[in-house]
Nucleic acid binder design. Structure first.
Length: 496
RNA sequence: GCCCCCGUAGCUCAACGGCAGAGCGCCGGGCUUUUAACCCGGGCGUUACAGGUUCGAGUCCUGUCGGGGGCACCA
């Protein structure tokens, strides 16, 4: 099947064969570089400042630009750290200059020589040898406009990385953020653990799971939607402070801040409660920001978001009363609340539970306004089956979610540790799912309930969406920009 | 799952229903300090795919595929 652009590929293949004909291996096994591009430039600048002779260097990278003249040329090569100009002269390279005839943009080369400042003032490597390290058989994206095609940016991320250098910096920031989060928990004596990704019950959150099959056991398994219930088993077992950073999978829609697989941080600390966790979060986020992006202020839509704590605290009840004008206590059941929301113009059906209605109310009137970091606290019990009820008012729980830039970034509660109450709450959720969503999936994790019956100490738990934290700290507008290989949107699977 | 928008050269983009174009890239030639190098010459294309309307379709219509945005879903 002939492809478009065949001539371009044929031209590169012809060069490949010519090189082989000249006894040049287009894919040599190694090249020893003495400096990265950035190191070479730095060493040169230091030598100049100290009045020392220009350093020798062996550098390597991908040819990003090529300015050919008759007997002298310039090639800009790129590695992960930056770009360096090679000054290639016929009299310095001798026969090696002929390599330029078969060199294309995108090829990898190595070069050695002394650093030199050109007439135009650019630090360059005055090459006395030039070696082909890998021939590129396909052309790189256009050098000036870069790669704009969103589909290819994500599906062929390597092209995006070649053409759009800022992607490298976002991913480095992501790596620094995760390292800083680890360092934060490690320094506080938390143990990092790994719990199962393949699980017999899709529990710990409400999302739809991905299913798979274990052949030898002939058993259906689910990719985890949250590590929560396993981490609590560890608290039961006496591991008092644990955390996990791992991938979870939710079979739900894809949009600017949802991807089917994403990275979730969860931590649990025995003898802590949700107030302790609030202090943890408002310490963690600014500290990570400082270490990973160099400051605690980030910009979002022209507004400066100040991450330094302490953060605002606002009860969900008061937030809804203030911003939606609805006193939740006046609408104790789903039907009356749905009626009230309709009068506010919120599109609701009567086939929604009270918890879901409140969630919609908060999502419509409260969350989008929470630009500065805010803890929204004391969620209604219907929305929080794993959280301990407030002793002062059992209609609410000791739970908070943290918002910044209008985005949920953390969820936490004083964990429910009464096994009988926990069972009753989970049974209630099962009934709601069957009644409102027609879901027949068994979500009861009996082993977890057994663990609770062995006794779990009072515990404060936390979940943070790591990708959203990276979005917040890097100013990214979509979750796809902070994940290297986001899921393509793709319409539903073929029906037949 | 629903609604709206988009798909043209390798890349970035033009083209009133009337001969498919430009810049970069690429190919040939020139050039020993360039910076999106420059100069001369060359369009390299199944206009996503399949049908339809029309004298004539990149453009209008239907469907399919892919993408983007919004809604729904995500306790």
């Amino acid at each position: 099947m002939p492809q478009r652009g065949d001539e371009l590929l044929a031209s590169r293949r012809a060069k490949l064969e010519r090189l082989r004909g000249r006894g040049i291996d287009p894919y040599p096994p190694r090249f020893r570089r003495s400096h990265t591009t950035a190191e070479a430039a730095r060493a040169f600048a230091e030598a100049e400042a100290g009045g020392k002779p220009a350093p020798e260097a062996a550098v390597a990278g991908r040819v990003a630009r090529l300015r050919r003249m008759g007997k002298a040329s310039f090639a800009d090569i790129e590695d992960s750290e930056g770009r360096l100009q090679l000054f290639l002269r016929s009299d310095a390279l001798g026969d090696g200059y002929a390599l330029l005839d078969d060199l294309d943009l995108g090829d990898f080369v190595g070069a050695s020589g002394a650093m030199l400042r050109t007439k135009a003032g650019e630090a360059s490597l005055d090459a006395d040898s030039l070696t082909l390290l890998a021939k590129a058989l396909r052309p790189p994206p256009e050098k000036f406009h870069g790669l704009r095609d969103v589909e290819r940016r994500y599906r062929q991320r390597y092209l995006d990385l070649i053409a759009n250098r800022e992607v490298h910096e976002t991913m480095r920031a992501r790596s620094r953020i995760i390292s800083a989060v680890r360092a934060f928990f490690d320094a506080r004596g938390y143990l990092e653990v790994d719990t199962p990704v393949l699980t017999p019950v899709a529990a710990g959150a409400m999302a739809q799971p991905f299913e798979t099959l274990h052949k030898a056991l002939d058993r259906k398994l689910y990719l985890r939607i949250a590590p929560e219930l396993y981490l609590k088993r560890l608290i039961v077992g006496g591991m008092d402070k644990v955390y996990e950073i791992g991938r979870v999978f939710r079979n739900e829609g894809i949009d600017a801040d949802h991807n089917p697989e994403f990275t979730l941080l969860e931590s649990y600390e025995a003898y802590a409660d949700y107030n302790d966790v609030m202090r943890l979060v408002e310490t963690l986020v600014p500290q990570v920001a400082l270490e990973a992006v160099g400051g605690t202020n980030v910009e979002r839509g022209g507004e400066v978001i100040r991450l330094a704590g302490p953060w605002a605290r606002l009860s969900l009840h008061d937030a809804v009363a203030e911003r939606a004008g609805v006193n939740l206590d006046d609408y104790p059941d789903a039907a009356s609340l749905a009626e009230r929301m309709r009068s506010l113009g919120v599109p609701v059906t009567y086939a929604e539970s009270r918890g879901r209605l409140i969630d919609k109310l908060v999502g419509t009137f409260v969350e989008p306004q929470l630009m500065q970091p805010t803890f929204l606290t004391d969620y209604p019990v219907e929305m929080s089956p794993l959280a301990k009820a407030s002793p002062a008012d059992p209609r609410y729980t000791e739970r908070f979610e943290a918002f910044a830039a209008g985005m949920e970034i953390a969820n936490s509660f004083t964990e429910l540790n009464d096994p009988d109450v926990q069972r009753a709450r989970l049974v209630e959720q099962e009934e709601l799912r069957i009644r409102y969503q027609g879901e027949d999936l068994d979500r009861m994790d009996e082993d977890f309930l057994t663990a609770l019956e062995h006794g779990m100490p009072p515990t404060g738990g936390l979940g943070i969406g790591v990708d959203r934290l990276v979005m917040l700290l890097t100013g990214s507008r979509t979750i796809r920009d902070v994940m290297l290989f986001p899921q393509a949107r793709q319409a539903g699977e073929a029906e037949c």
